[in-house]
């Protein structure tokens, strides 16, 4: 069920003096079961790009293929696409509208035309996946805490049982605890459902820990598409783009510059500690 993005370009306000290119001739392929981090700062085009993956935006030129078929050729059912490629927008809690948590999560599967039983089953599973306890099911979603609201909103997309889950800055505005909990549940979702995850973020630290592939966007173009370690090798360039590398990777570069013989392809604190101890013992 791979997704292929082929020479995709998207312009805002086409044909007006305010025209601007948001995505510029971008091509890449998403394979089954990947965990991709899509990084770029505000205005780099990453949010616009992901809205093409489920057909919410139509490219100005270029195409998107899902499972080998062109998504925008007219007879492709976009509803089916949207159930297969779940897109969680930024601040997804702003989309909650039902009187209770459970009905809100049912909205997605209900729109797919599933039976009541199947709908409820899926909603239940989705809520469990993101760690919402039964006690909250019949509360108003508006009475929950910020972190809980966001989980419920994500469950609303998960309940459609997408094969690809795309999340646009899911941790924005959460505190460190909320952020860690959320990222951890995403990892669990991936393990339990085997879905592909595309995580859009501007935090290198978040993505480094979970993604097995990182795509970096800058000025509407893809500049790097590689494993985290390989992407972080472009230390200077990433810094220039205002993105940087994880703090610990940066520290390893500084140590190396100061004459310590440490590797620089390190992205977690534990690995850093091991590497430093190794040279210190020698």
């Amino acid at each position: 069920m791979s997704i292929i993005v082929n020479h995709l370009t998207y312009r805002y306000n086409e044909g007006t003096p305010m025209e601007s290119v948001a995505v510029d001739d971008v091509s890449f392929k998403i394979e089954d079961g990947e965990f991709i981090g899509l990084i770029g700062h505000t205005g780099s085009g990453k949010s616009t790009l992901v809205q093409h993956l489920n057909g919410i935006l139509k490219p100005t030129s270029g195409s998107v293929y899902y499972d080998g078929r062109d998504v925008f050729d007219g007879d492709f059912d976009l509803k089916v696409l949207r159930s297969n490629v779940g897109l969680v927008f930024q601040y997804p809690e702003h989309q909650l509208f039902e009187t209770d948590v459970f009905s809100d999560v049912c909205f997605g599967p209900k729109n797919l035309g599933l039976s009541k039983k199947e709908t409820e089953l899926r909603a239940y599973k989705a809520l469990k996946l993101v760690g919402i306890e039964d006690d909250f099911f019949y509360q108003s979603p508006f009475d929950l805490s910020g972190g809980q609201k966001r989980r419920v909103a994500i469950a609303g997309v998960l309940a459609m049982e997408p094969k690809v889950l795309v999340l646009d800055e899911p941790t924005a505005g959460l505190d460190p605890k909320g952020r860690d909990d959320l990222l951890l549940s995403l990892k669990q979702v991936k393990e339990e459902t085997g879905c592909t995850i595309v995580l859009v973020s501007h935090s290198m630290e978040d993505v480094a820990l979970y993604a097995d592939r990182i795509i970096v966007m800058n000025h509407a173009k893809i500049v790097y598409d590689d494993t985290p370690v390989n992407v972080f090798r472009h230390y200077d360039k990433l810094k220039e783009m205002g993105l940087g590398v994880p703090e610990i990777t940066s520290a390893m570069y500084k140590l190396r510059a100061a004459g310590f013989d440490v590797p620089t392809d390190i992205i977690t604190v534990n690995d850093a500690v091991d590497a430093i101890m190794k040279i210190m013992r020698a």
């Binding site: 809205q51 489920n54 919410i56 509803k79 949207r82 159930s83 779940g86 897109l87 969680v88 927008f89 930024q90 997804p92 702003h94 989309q95 909205f107 997605g108 729109n111 797919l112 609303g156 997309v157 459609m160």
Partner: peptide
Amino acid sequence: EETDKIMKAQMARGAD
């Protein structure tokens, strides 16, 4: 802008 965003978010959940 917000209307546009919410609309898209609900469309992503299959709203018509």
